[in-house]
């Protein structure tokens, strides 16, 4: 079981939270879990949409004090 790696993409417009997550997913190993932090309103929908289409696993998705915490496990 791997540790969860935090991807802090709060307060960023470019390259943006999802692009940051994809960058770190590419650097990770299958089975790794990443937790994306995002203040972008759209992340709650955009990120799960990509995770589903790319075939990874959405572990959790919640917004706490205006910050999205989205955990994703690399599946392939």
């Amino acid at each position: 079981m791997s540790d969860t790696k935090i991807v802090d993409a709060r307060d960023t417009f470019c390259p943006g939270p999802l692009m940051e997550l994809i960058t770190y997913m590419k650097q990770s190993n299958v089975g790794d879990t990443l937790e994306l932090l995002s203040t972008d309103d759209g992340s709650g929908n955009d990120v799960p949409e990509w995770v589903d289409k790319a075939g990874h696993e959405l572990v959790s998705n919640e917004r706490v004090d205006g910050v999205w915490h989205i955990k994703v496990r690399k599946a392939k």
Partner: peptide, 10 residues
């Protein structure tokens, strides 16, 4: 494009 819109900046 990698994400769900035409550019990362909304």
């Amino acid at each position: 494009y990698p994400i769900g819109r035409l550019h990362t900046i909304q």
